Amino acid sequence: MSKELVIQLYQKQDRKRRRVLFDLFSDTIQLNASLRFIAGLINQELGQEEMVSEADVKYCRYYFSGKATSRPATISSAHRESKVPVGKKESGKEVSWTDPDDQNFNLNNPVKSKFSKR
C-alpha cells in the first residue's frame, strides 16, 4: 500500500480509508502522543494539510489496535462447571423454595395504598 492510495481514498471519502490508513501508519498512530500531533505527522508525511483528522486517529486507535476486538467472551464450559448447581447452597444443603401462588403474600405486605381493598 502506498501513500497515494490513502490520499485517493480520503479524497473519495471511501469507507475503508481508515483501515488502509492504520495499515500504513500503525506505528505512528500507536505512539504515546496527542491526537493532534499524530494527525499532524501523518498529514506532513502525506504532503496534505488537514486530510487526516484527530477523529480519524482516535477511530483507528480504538477499532484497529486490538483493544476493541477483545470483547468479553461468553460463559465458558469451565466457568459453568464451577458454579453451584441450582437449588443447592455452597454448604451442600438444599434450598427450600417457596411458591408465591401457594401462600397469601398480600396479608404480609406492610405497604398500604389507596387502591388496596383493605
Score class of each variant (00 low, 15 high):
S82L: 15
S26A: 09
K117E: 08
F115V: 06
P110K: 03
L46F: 06
V20E: 15
R61K: 15
E45V: 02
S96W: 01
F25Y: 15
N43I: 08
V57P: 00
Q44T: 13
A39D: 01
V84K: 11
S34Q: 07
P85G: 02
G87H: 09
S116P: 00
A73R: 15
I75R: 13
V20I: 14
S65E: 06
Y59F: 15
E4I: 13
R15V: 12
H79I: 12
Q103R: 09
R71E: 12
E45G: 05
S96A: 05
V20W: 04
E50G: 04
T69L: 11
F105W: 15
S53W: 02
S77G: 03
V95D: 00
L5Y: 03
E4L: 15
R118K: 12
Q103W: 05
V111W: 07
Q48L: 05
N108E: 11
D23Y: 05
N106C: 02
I7C: 06
G92T: 08
L9M: 13
K83A: 06
S113V: 06
A33T: 04
L41M: 14
G87T: 05
L107V: 11
N43K: 07
C60H: 05
S2Q: 10
V111A: 08
K3P: 00
F64P: 00
F22K: 01
A39P: 00
P85Q: 08
I75E: 09
I29H: 02
G47V: 08
K3W: 00
V52M: 10
D23N: 13
G40E: 14
E90V: 15
I42K: 00
L46W: 07
R80G: 04
S53K: 14
R19V: 14
I29V: 13
